[in-house]
Amino acid sequence: MFRIIKVEGESMSPDYNSGDYVLVSRFPLLLHMVKVDSVLVFKSQKYGILIKKVSEIDKVQKKYFLKGSNQMSLSTEMIGAIDEKSIIGSVLLHFRQ
């Protein structure tokens, strides 16, 4: 239920920089603790495994909309709605380089 993930790239900078590590878990999802501005690691069919910040949650359909921390990132529209089952985990701890 816990995984360590390495951040690659700069689209979450300055919050998360390339080379940083995060500890993620699905527990916050199961406990309905994920909210706007929570940071999730998830699988996108188009882009692979991404790390992004929650911008909106559709609680009825259990869909998440995400964004990066800067303009380099894909837009929320490009990422699309993410199903709860595609979420690897919510960031619990951040280990800066």
Binding site: I4, I5, I49
Partner: peptide
């Protein structure tokens, strides 16, 4: 070799 989550080249630069 931990899994990597991309925050990189999300927009193909």
């Amino acid at each position: 070799h931990f899994t990597a989550a991309k925050a990189h080249c999300d927009i193909p630069c």
